[in-house]
Simulated scan of single mutants.
Amino acid sequence: MDSLCEAGKLEDAAKIFSDLVLRRLEPNVKIYTILMKGLCKKGLMDEANQLLRKMENDGCSPDELTYNTIIRGYILKNDLTNASYYCDLMVSKGLKGDANTFSLLVGLLSSVT
C-alpha cells in the first residue's frame, strides 16, 4: 500500500484497504496511516480527516506517526489553524511530535508573521 500511495495510486491503495475490511481483517494503525499519508500528499485533507474519524470509530487509536502525518498535510496546505489543532490534540493525548513536523510548523509560523 505504501508504494502505491507513494506512486500516487490512491485508488489502488484504497481498494487494498477495502479488501482488508471485506475479508474481516482489521486494518491496524500502520495501514490507516499509510493511506492517510497518501491522501495528505495529494492535498485531500477532508478525506484524510474522514479516514482519521473512521480509524477512531473502528477502535484503532492514532499514534505519533498518524498525527504527524495529518499535521504535515495541513502544513503543506498552509493551513496553520488545523495544523495547530492537531498538534494540540496530539499533545493532549500524551503523544509527541517529531522534529521534522515541528520544524515545518515553525517554518509555517514564521511565514505568517
Rank of each mutant, 00 (worst) to 15 (best):
Y74D: 00
S84C: 07
L109Y: 14
G94Q: 11
S92K: 14
C40E: 02
K54V: 13
E26G: 06
N82V: 01
M90Q: 11
V21C: 13
L51P: 01
L22C: 06
K93G: 02
L22I: 01
K37C: 08
I70G: 04
P27E: 10
M90R: 11
C87K: 11
N28D: 15
N68F: 09
K42P: 00
D63H: 08
L10G: 15
L108G: 04
Q50I: 02
C87L: 15
C87R: 14
M55P: 00
Q50V: 08
I34C: 11
S61T: 10
F102K: 02
S61W: 07
I75C: 15
V91D: 08
A83K: 03
V91I: 15
N100I: 08
A14K: 15
R24H: 07
D88G: 01
K96I: 14
S110G: 01
A99K: 09
K77Y: 00
C40K: 01
Y85W: 07
A14H: 09
P27S: 12
M90Y: 09
D79C: 09
K54E: 15
I31M: 13
F102G: 06
T69S: 08
G38H: 03
M36K: 04
M1K: 03
C5A: 11
R24Q: 12
E56F: 01
Y74E: 01
G38P: 05
L95G: 04
L80T: 01
L4W: 09
K15Y: 04
A13F: 09
V106Q: 07
I75H: 07
G73I: 11
S111I: 10
I70R: 02
D88K: 13
D2R: 13
T69P: 02
A83T: 04
E47H: 03
R23V: 00
V21E: 15
D12M: 12
K42W: 01
L35V: 11
L105F: 15
A13H: 05
L10N: 04
S84P: 00
E26T: 13
L4D: 11
L51V: 02
L89C: 03
D12T: 14
D19C: 00
A48H: 03
V112D: 04
S103N: 14
